[in-house]
Design a binder for these strands. Structure first.
Lengths: 207, 207
DNA sequence: GTCTATAGAGGGATAGAC
DNA sequence: GTCTATCCCTCTATAGAC
């Protein structure tokens, strides 16, 4: 992979992070990469082609980098801690912003829709088995729809990222609240046999 | 309020819904409103000014229209049913899309950031007291951070909307999963005294 | 692979007639 | 309030020299 190509990808991500999709153009990317504008079209055919490639590269690399951490989680408490850690890393690196911006552009571009779907699908493919593993044998696994839950979690982080951009303190308190709710789920997975039986009975009568 | 002004607002919302933020311009709005382009600047000074006004008007109207339904919810189960209903209405009307697009534009425009924040704040102001009312006296209220939880819910719906645009069936399964998780929360709020005491003890030892 | 130059479309915004 | 006409800018993308 040529050096310029790599620099253009990094520049595209940088602009997307800092100025959003509407601040992104062949000109702004080329300026950030300190490269000639025409090279974008030489290397990627179109600006959207560059965004798609850049999005794919970062998401794949980010998920691969966290794969080992996901695998260490054995309980729901572990997984919540891992999730918190990964979220902090990804947010600080601005990679959630990139996914959010690409997803927002999905309405006007099939290419961006494909890239945004790939980003979410890639994360979901990690979250879902981890969730299944830590919930196996708990009362939550009996009622929860795990594939759907993994999807809800991935999508929610995108929403929280957009919220963060307009209200950082509100977004922080939302994350704290989810963390505390995780403690509650942890309690349910960890009930003693008597309480657990009562819980199960209630659950059956409801669903 | 002049007729043209009103038509421009509706046209702006229509374009935002159907073509997203990047498909929005003075020209596309004017075409959709069947009005002269220059009138946008006469009535709203700038295109962003129009978007801000349009966003404010819809969000305020939508929240006001649902206020009575929120007030009817007395239990968590009620509130979940109301939430599901409101979400379906808002999604079908395309109003969640509008908020999502405006929020995505927040990174490149202070005006859009203000409008997006207003949209979320307005919804949160309805969700938070309703949540507090239905959870009063339940074990969940002891552990949950209600203001943060209300914020997390509002933000998550934005994320789910963006997900919906790229994967409708995935998004549907995510919503189903959250609904099922709501049943679980409902069970916790509704435990008998013995199970409840056991649950409380567990909760204290964790937090 | 990299550059300059430019075509050609579309963007925001304004001046000024009516 | 509404219209036409227009300025000037930025955009994607390509042609063609090096």
């Amino acid at each position: 992979m040529s050096d310029t190509r790599q620099r253009l990808i990094e520049a595209a991500l940088e602009v997307l992070r800092e100025r959003g999709l509407s601040g992104l153009s062949a000109r702004t990317i080329a300026a950030a990469a300190d490269a000639n504008q025409a090279l974008i079209f030489y290397h990627f055919k179109t600006v959207e082609g560059l965004i798609e490639d850049a999005c794919r590269v970062t998401v794949d690399a980010a998920v691969a980098a966290h794969r080992d951490r996901f695998a260490t989680a054995e309980t729901l408490g572990d997984l919540l801690a891992v999730g918190r850690e990964i979220h902090a890393t990804e947010l600080a690196a601005g990679r959630v912003t990139i996914s959010a911006q690409v997803l927002a552009g999905a309405r006007s571009s099939e290419v961006l829709a494909r890239a945004g779907k790939h980003a979410l699908d890639t994360w979901i493919a990690e979250i879902e088995p981890a969730l299944a593993r830590v919930l196996r044998g708990t009362p939550i696994a009996e009622i929860a729809d795990l594939p759907g839950l993994a999807r809800a979690i991935a999508a929610s982080f995108i929403g929280l990222e957009l919220y963060e951009a307009v209200d950082a303190s509100g977004s922080a308190s939302a994350l704290d609240a989810l963390e505390r709710l995780g403690i509650l789920a942890d309690v349910v997975t960890d009930l003693g046999p008597v309480a657990r039986a009562a819980f199960r009975r209630r659950l059956r009568s409801k669903s």
